[in-house]
Design a protein around this nucleic acid. Structure first.
Lengths: 339, 339
DNA sequence: CTGTTAGCGCCTTCAT
DNA sequence: ATGAAGGCGCTAACAG
């Protein structure tokens, strides 16, 4: 087996309690013994067994992360933020991805329980009732991009509705009236919010007939590609397309390009998320930037506070930012990624 | 606290050993007691405490994953593969990312140890000596995309050298002679292998003077963008560019586009990895497809075998596939992503 | 077949 | 200031 506290005690010529005290910095221990213990631990390369620790009701040092299917860059950025902050706080991440089905979701939560001190849950498809149940059953939970109203749970969201509203208004201000939307997953609340923002902006501008302008989609390039083709097949072309997210927009861009449609001259295109690829698309993509890495960090900070008993449940809404680039603005040059 | 085995025993009117036996499916237990135990466990929502289990020298059920900085889609795909297979085998993933510094790397390994039954390590910057040390100190380890020669450790690699060789030969066959390369991180062995494949192909074709054709880069769109600009500044332009990876190639594509250089007519461009974005680039990118999701699954399978005591350390090299698309082939149309 | 018991490694009273 | 002992939840020998 590995080296235990007993080995350290033996080598240092003290009892295991003394070793424990020194290593946990509890009470006072004579300096000479302290040094001996530290030396022995160092020499043996001793690390306390985390299993034994958590058995005593101590922290496990783990943070569970449950994610739905999200686009690659979003996923990557979010996890990077989580990991940066978690490492900084001495936690490690237990990750479980791609849980669309609530059955899988439940079992994932179940498996993580007891292994972690708290959980970060991104579940845009989760309802209020589910969420509260989750929060009640487990310990500390911070929801991200999940629409939960209960004041008893913590949430870090960003403004899907407002971002979409601003984006659509931007297009309306440019004179567009026939603006189409490629919608995201019908069951995902964030996609629904984005669609609402679009619809409200349109209605406020007096465009109430959205027939033929709303097409189903997903958060993928493939879906955007297909949806754009569908839009191109209609008898009345839109003059602008708002896509579910950046990947979706990039897929749409490809379809338009193949069809020989110039962007933004003939049809303007916009995305959502503000991933790196959005600025390397051609033309560079107008989008709504979501600081997802920073959101990840904030979620961990909130969770750690909760776990440590400091801080109450709170709801944060992180602002998003409209980035206007070449895909919607004629005459703005090619929209170089580095101006 | 939570519900323990004792609670279940009490409710079922049996001893804790009987509960343990039923739940672990060991020996025979009278059917009526079996049912009672199962009912009690169900009713109480009992889950064995994993900490107590692993304290007995049992499995923790965890698999550690240590990753370097990798591009978003690569990261996402790899993790998806790992997670799919891990979940299927009843394991969960403990993930630690972005370890460039060996100091961080070491501490990450240290923290994971004892918490997991085995580790997946992707560390293209790791040397043979480091790798063997890592493998010796921990339990089961499977290296991925890491150049390790020792027969005592398991490795799942893919053919960086061969892929690059094939790709460069493809360009040479098209008549290109002045082929530039945007290199990846100088310390990463996979990038070095790709550069070697390029160089050997060039030399074999009789092009031995590579001056001005090799530029430094990274695995990012930004780096590709900058590097391409650098190449464009030289007095003798290349007729083709081999990029470190797809993201890098997409960045290069952008720079060429801005400069008004037509691809592939004036300069052909190729990437590496075969991520989804490569087919949505404009023009669609010729690349070397690395089945990274499947590699992830294979790595988990290999690791689980090792953990279970079945199977010996083995070295796998997963084949890669050259995908010729519009960015290198004139007259092939626009290279629609869905032909 | 089933119940009792001894630890796994660690922290924490309780004595000394 | 330090050592001895109990117990966290569980499994695996050992009795019965």
């Amino acid at each position: 087996m590995v080296v235990t506290i007993r080995d350290v005690a033996e080598r240092a010529g003290v009892s295991i309690s003394t070793v424990s005290r020194v290593l946990n910095d509890i009470c006072a221990v004579k300096e000479d013994k302290r040094v001996k213990v530290l030396e022995a631990a160092e020499a043996l390369g001793y690390t306390p067994n985390p299993a034994a620790r958590s058995l005593l009701g101590k922290k496990t040092g783990g943070i569970g992360v449950v994610l739905p299917f999200v686009s690659a860059e979003f996923f990557s950025e979010f996890l990077t933020g989580l990991d940066q902050e978690a490492q900084g706080s001495g936690y490690f991440l237990v990750v479980s991805t791609s849980h669309r089905l609530s059955k899988e979701f439940e079992s994932a939560m179940q498996a993580m329980r007891q292994r972690v001190d708290g959980m970060i849950v991104m579940a845009p498809e989760l309802g209020d009732a589910d969420a509260e149940m989750v929060a009640k059953a487990r310990g500390a939970v911070v929801f991200v991009n999940t629409y939960v109203t209960s004041e008893r749970v913590s949430v870090v969201n960003f403004d899907n509705y407002g971002g979409s509203l601003a984006l659509t208004n931007h297009l309306l201000e440019l004179g567009h009236r026939r603006i189409a939307i490629i919608k995201g997953p019908a069951s995902a609340r964030d996609a629904i919010e984005r669609a609402s923002g679009y619809r409200d902006a349109m209605n406020a501008a007096g465009v109430s007939d959205l027939a033929g302008l709303e097409v189903e989609g997903e958060y993928t390039q493939e879906a955007g590609y297909r949806a754009a083709q569908e839009l191109l097949d209609s008898d009345r072309l839109p003059t602008a397309i708002v896509a579910a997210n950046d990947y979706c927009a990039i897929g749409a861009l490809r379809a338009l390009n193949e069809a020989g449609v110039r962007v933004p001259e003939e049809i303007a295109v916009a995305g959502f998320d503000g991933i790196t690829s959005s600025q390397f698309a051609r033309p560079a993509l107008t989008t709504v930037h979501v600081p997802i890495r920073e959101i990840g960090r904030k979620a961990i900070r909130t969770l750690v506070e909760l776990v440590d008993g400091r801080g109450e449940p709170k709801h944060d809404i992180v602002p998003v930012e409209l980035l206007v680039r070449a895909s919607t603005s004629i005459g703005d040059g090619d929209g170089a990624p580095f101006p």
